[in-house]
Design a protein around this nucleic acid. Structure first.
Lengths: 209, 209, 209, 209
DNA sequence: GATGAATGAGTTTTCATTCAT
DNA sequence: TATGAATGAAAACTCATTCAT
């Protein structure tokens, strides 16, 4: 189940690397960095272990690239997808929450466990021990909250909100609410915690729940 | 640096266990479960490794007791402390955020790193792999959000808010905001993310930021 | 369930040692030397671990005394008991096998497992690694086969057998048959292997099965 | 000192596994399961410890495969070898005892210690604690006594015996005698105990000692 | 570009034994 | 005589990483 349309012109080596990346990203997400062994990644990717080290300097750098990979997936499927589908800023926000909820719901149904936010997971586990991972996750979350900042800006421009706040701050707060919601969902193993948080997000923007 | 007033009547063995617990809790918090080795815990606690296993079935169970230990610390120092100091619900909320901010600020100044929320950290890292840890963290966070639920209820009773929501839901949302804020602070290595979220929390309650 | 009538005049210390001995002997028999931890012995004996080392130089020497203890039990309950109960040499042999069978049957019913011969067990496990244990077991088995040697001698004297062999050799062979039978019973978890061997023993003596 | 003609077509990995197996089997036999450390096995096999765990799930499973390995060796060298060399059932029995005696004699001369029967040793030590080992040993001994059952059947068919017994029972009894003899030899450190038992075995079959 | 095999250095866990009171 | 507590040494087992082909 390749999650990304891999380039048809990709060389054999690029495909191998991609397979490893998909396997690793999936496993890191569903479990954790430390709990996933390189052995298991290559087993799932169906490649030789030495190939792993041909394409990645070490496990940490593989994780780094996984964050990038998950980033591009999330941006496409969650943010860009929602923005393309809906024009109204509030509907966009709703769609974002809906898509995230659906993804977690499906994962719970199939795997019994809710994986939470892949970026928060990595960040939580590794921020204090790996500065490069911390920075990468910081960067990724930074790219996401601009989507939510824009939702607020659009809502404001359309007169949908009475709140008059610093957009950057609102963007970050919305991101924080989303992060908190996914973490809750994971820890309580309850996907509905994500949709529950939508009303909070709307309140921040200043629209009725 | 004992974080808790340990009972004066404690036996020698209980004190040893307590020392291990303090060392382990601190290290798990500042780093992560997997990145902290039992060797290092007993080194910090200045006990023999076999003693660790005399008092704890294994590393996982030690972590479990660490969650309990951090829970009692947090409840006392953050929640009960704030409630005892302030009577006004909004002031209580502010005090909670303030105390959490101060703790993180201090840790950043001393250790260069922001540890984030000990419960979210554990939960994030282990929820999908250790059901007993997941349940313990779920339980702990459950105990915390009732404090915030009460803040909302009190605010409502005092006519400080115009919002009319289900208190349990508000409690959970406030907890989510706090969690998201601590995670942000950790990942962005920026303690101010905690205080920044206070305005979001207040907005949810329905009081002016 | 003390297996031996301990002296009423025994001091407190002697009783403690006796309790340890009983616990250790029982556990070594039912499991094995290496698989039984000193911790578990003192737990069953309900004594402090340091007491164990007050009465026994170390685990090996405790095992050594266990062999002696089991020897006296076995001599009384199996050999002397059978000899006292029966006068006829063949009946005596039958009674020996019967008593051993009953003991194993009961143990299987209660513990699901057949422990086999305590002396063979110790010997098998330790003979090549502990010369003092090997010698002790050799001595004990040596004391036992004289009972069987005497059975043969008596049978011969009574004209119950036509075989004319060196009695010492017959004694050893009978002991070997018994040992083999108990080992079979243990490995096949089948107490009847003991009674099955009676016919072999009788054949050696030269009486009809 | 490879005891088995290993396949020339074996891969490098298979050869490594074989080396470990040979080292482990030898050491378990000469000492005991618990007394042999994985460290020492890999030292003798001249492989890295991790390789041990690449080829065997754990120590217990290695022991399990050792039993299989010793089984094939014993079947070839002792039973099949004797049957191939001799046609007469009694001569076959004598040859079996002779070969076992020679093996033990040689081991005593070289190692000072008689290792006894590898299967009885394992069984004795582990039967009550490892059900999978107990079953494996039971199975192996079961395969051996059919050789001795056949000796009795052949002897009977040739009119060499007057005894008229259930062949399966005789097979088991002969196996028991052999087992008892090897155990005696080990505990008394006297290889001759094996040859001494031959007369017992012959008596059971019903031929003159 | 790929892979079977190997490995150094850890990592958790255990155990017999002893100390201090 | 007894015991709560501690511990050195080693045990089984693991893991990221690299080698040789």
């Amino acid at each position: 189940m390749p999650l990304l349309n891999t380039n048809d012109r990709a060389t054999k080596g690029e495909l191998t690397k991609q397979r490893i990346l998909e396997a690793a990203a999936q496993m890191f997400w569903k479990s954790s960095y430390h709990n996933v062994r390189v052995d298991k990644i290559v087993e799932l990717a169906e490649v030789n272990k030495a190939s792993f080290y041909q394409y990645f300097k070490n496990k940490e750098h593989a994780a780094l690239e996984c964050v990038d990979y998950m980033f591009s997936l999330t941006r496409e499927h969650i943010f860009e997808g929602s923005f393309a589908q809906e024009q109204d800023p509030i509907k966009r926000l709703e769609e974002i929450y809906h898509r995230i909820y659906m993804a977690h719901k499906e994962l719970k149904d199939n795997e019994e466990q809710i994986p939470g936010c892949p970026f928060m997971n990595m960040g939580s586990e590794l921020a204090t021990d790996s500065e490069i991972i911390r920075q990468k996750v910081e960067q990724v979350l930074g790219e996401f909250y601009v989507y939510q900042q824009r939702i607020y800006e659009d809502a404001k421009a359309k007169g949908l909100t009475t709140m008059d706040w610093e957009p950057e701050l609102v963007g970050r707060q919305l991101q924080g609410i989303l992060n908190g919601a996914m973490s809750s969902a994971k820890i309580r193993n309850r996907p509905e915690d994500i949709t529950d948080a939508l009303v909070t997000a709307k309140t921040i923007i200043g629209v009725p729940g």
